[in-house]
Design a protein around this nucleic acid. Structure first.
Length: 470
DNA sequence: CTATGGCACGGATT
DNA sequence: AATCCGTGCCATAG
């Protein structure tokens, strides 16, 4: 946890840097925590409940749009509009954020998942088990897996392990099935259990999951085949079932209702830190980039406080001044953070416009290092600004910001397309040929790696029969 | 003999 | 300084 040195009187430049860097790397949720903490700790800091139009900076009427800018001018310029957007509501999938439970009961990021699961299981449990359930639910990680063990829960509450396990099992069968499992393997097993209650589950699928989570994820089909004593094709079939019906990370399917059709990695389901859209929703128009700060209104140093300081003396004044300095520093750091991100997004959006508009195929390989040169900041600054942040694209997808810096995503996408429309299974070396024809020069070995990344089987295991072809 | 995966190396990236 | 990524070489399966 981030803590202030309690009595730094003047904002040293090192403190500046340290804090700005810290703030820079925070996601909206974490930033929210920081701001809340700072607000309650420091009386000199004030949250002004007033919004200004991001375009023209006029004060907005409550809940309304800017009378001047709400219908943006017929702006033909494609220059992206980048602005800081103060908002505190939950907007990820358009639904409103509900909070039936006191906020600080759970930790920030998985708060909604925790509540969602808890709400389901509460009715099924005896009331003395509620606290167990709440405790377990508050220890989900981002993927919906448990960060603690049942044993720890047992020790914490001094209750029999059986009871913990009973509660635990109820939770794991709740909606994102497998949520709260201790490992990906556990999650898969529970999902198999639940599935087998309703429909058919290939025996082989279960055996694979039980046996080799490691060789499974790396697609060692032949190893598995030998181990199980069946043909490789059978294994492939079972794996298909697994990847179609099971999910090792329960939380990920659940929040992605908009696009469940993307089993490939890359999707993230948190509230985004940045939202990109088209002006007037028109793909021909400029891009609008909102950088979210998780408060309504804006922060400033309380002017009354500044006056009060002049009327006091001695010790009290020292105390007040320290608060004042800290508040000023905080606001300044926040501004700096926003400024850096704003500049970065401005650049990024201009470079990756085609990616945003036309999809992964058009992603231009671009590194953080190049970005840092363009922006004339240190590489680590860019790095911090990028990691852990997520972006909502105009089509509604929420992806990690780091995707904008993926060196091979475009090639992988083209590769996927080639394979999708291939008439017969092409070997890796043939794929190299196809790719180079489209202008992508990669080694044979690399194609194999990309295939693995995309979860595509090797040529001799791809069905030549009428599956799907365009 | 061909296709593919493992290991490891070097250079780029973070 | 640590990590990631593309690639070459070699072993193995078919």
């Amino acid at each position: 946890m981030f803590q202030y040195q309690t009595h730094t009187l003047r904002p040293l430049t090192t403190a500046h840097l340290a804090q700005t860097m810290t703030l820079l790397s925070l996601t909206v949720d974490e930033l929210r925590q920081q701001i809340d903490a700072e607000l309650s700790a420091n009386p000199a800091l004030e949250l002004v409940d007033e919004r200004r139009c991001p375009m023209c900076h006029r004060v907005l009427p409550k809940g309304g749009n800017c009378p001047v800018c709400s219908t943006p001018q017929n702006d033909q310029s494609l220059e992206p509009i980048v602005y800081i957007s103060p908002r505190d509501e939950f907007y990820a999938t358009g639904d409103t954020y509900q909070d039936d439970y006191p906020e600080d009961q759970f930790s920030s990021q998985v708060e909604n998942l925790a509540e969602y699961v808890l709400r389901q299981v509460i009715p099924e449990l005896e009331s003395e088990d509620h606290k167990l359930a709440a405790f377990i639910c508050s220890h989900f990680d981002d993927d919906g897996l448990l960060t603690i063990t049942p044993l720890e829960v047992m020790r914490y509450f001094h209750v029999p392990l059986d009871r913990v396990n009973a509660v635990h099992n109820v939770i794991r069968r709740a909606d994102p099935i497998g949520v709260g499992s201790c490992s990906t393997q556990d999650a898969l097993l529970i999902q198999l259990d639940v599935l087998s209650e309703t429909g058919m589950v290939p025996v082989l699928a279960r055996k694979i999951v039980e046996a080799g989570i490691t060789s499974m994820s790396r697609q060692h089909y032949s190893d598995l085949a030998r181990q199980m004593g069946v043909t490789v094709a059978k294994i492939a079939e079972a794996m298909r079932f697994i990847s179609d019906n099971l999910n090792p990370f329960p939380a990920r399917t659940h929040w992605g209702d908009s696009q469940q059709v993307n089993p490939n990695r890359g999707e993230v389901y948190h509230r985004p830190d940045i939202i990109i859209s088209y002006l007037n929703n028109d793909p021909e128009k400029a891009l609008v980039v909102e950088i979210i700060i998780p408060i309504g209104g804006y922060l400033r140093v309380n002017p009354l406080y500044r006056q009060a300081i002049k009327q006091t003396e001695g010790e009290t004044q020292e105390g007040l001044r320290s608060d004042l300095d800290r508040a000023g520093l905080f606001v300044k750091c926040l501004q700096q953070r926003n400024h850096t991100i704003r500049r970065m997004m401005q650049k990024l959006v201009m470079i990756q416009r085609s990616f945003i508009q036309y999809g992964e195929k058009s992603l231009i390989p671009f590194t953080r290092a190049q970005m840092s040169q363009d922006l004339e900041v240190h590489e680590s600054t860019v790095s911090r600004a990028v990691t852990n942040k997520t972006v909502q694209l105009p089509n509604g997808r929420i992806v990690p910001l780091s995707m904008f810096f993926d060196r091979s995503l475009n090639v992988r996408t083209v590769l996927r397309e080639i394979i999708a429309r291939e008439a017969r299974p092409l070997s890796d070396s043939e794929l190299v040929e196809m790719l180079s024809r489209e202008g992508y020069r990669v080694a044979r070995r690399t194609v194999a790696k990309y295939r693995a990344m995309e979860g595509i089987l090797p040529a001799h295991l791809r069905h030549p029969e009428p599956g799907y072809n365009h």
